[in-house]
Design a protein around this nucleic acid. Sequence first.
DNA 1: CCGAATCCGACGGGATACTG
DNA 2: CAGTATCCCGTCGGATTCGG
Lengths: 160, 160
Amino acid sequence: MAGEALLEELRATLVHGNPERTATLDTTLRFVAEHGLGPQSLPVEIIQLVGDRWSALMLTVLAAGTFRPSELQKVVSLLSHIGNSNSISQRVLTAKLRSYERLGFVRRTAWDTVPPRTDYDLTPLGHELVKIIRDIVLWCLDKEDDVRSAIQAFDESEDE
Amino acid sequence: MAGEALLEELRATLVHGNPERTATLDTTLRFVAEHGLGPQSLPVEIIQLVGDRWSALMLTVLAAGTFRPSELQKVVSLLSHIGNSNSISQRVLTAKLRSYERLGFVRRTAWDTVPPRTDYDLTPLGHELVKIIRDIVLWCLDKEDDVRSAIQAFDESEDE
DNA sequence: CCGAATCCGACGGGATACTG
DNA sequence: CAGTATCCCGTCGGATTCGG
């Protein structure tokens, strides 16, 4: 692959002013070069898809079962009001659902009835994703105190 | 807390047209209501901070050691070119670094020299975060085939 | 070399109205 | 009720310039 020459260039650049950089740097760069964590890579695209205002909440709720869009909107909106946040708009809700569906995280089931009815639920892949999200959330909650004190210290040292 | 009346309202709404929803739904809603996954919550703010174009790459590289901004910019930009992406601008780089620093994920060390020199490296908390990011990335890579075929199937059924 | 300031295009996300 | 289209605004992110 094209990475070898690149890694050599990086090595030359970085060791220049800091000769003691060697092993761990090399393995890390190699990891990134092989897997490609650039903005276009699939991992980053997935992270971006989930890293927005509503996805953590939406997907976590969806993990509880099957929902119609109007139900989901109401549940998500009510739950977000706990934190004094606004409601999710229908526009954003359907857009996110379609994104999840495209990547295979949710399944869409539509009936030809009047009035129309559509159900959304997670695929097995989606359930795996939610499991990861829950791990992240739990870690964040576990570190909440550390982060908050860091924020406070930073902000205080700013407006001195 | 205010959650109890809210949960009752949600229960009434959701069971309405679907009486078999009970246990798992309730525990999930309770989890979300207690931890608050709304847009203002700390977990979601952290997820948003990391869920952008460059954070996965930047933080992974930073896990390899100490970097000066110019070094970091060059490394990140070169590595992103593997995926034919653009370079990260200095503006975004420093902004992201400050965000990370504010939440306690990176440490900034500045010298009073001419020309100036500043070093950035991860805090222990930052290293934990990178570990989580690496788990996500590895999961995404593991599921890459599934996701890509889902995307293909979705896109084909669109432009029928 | 560090990084703040400015300008600008692109996108996310909210409100509303409209079709089936 | 599901879904789309339109309008609008705030933020993200890139390019460039300037000061320390």
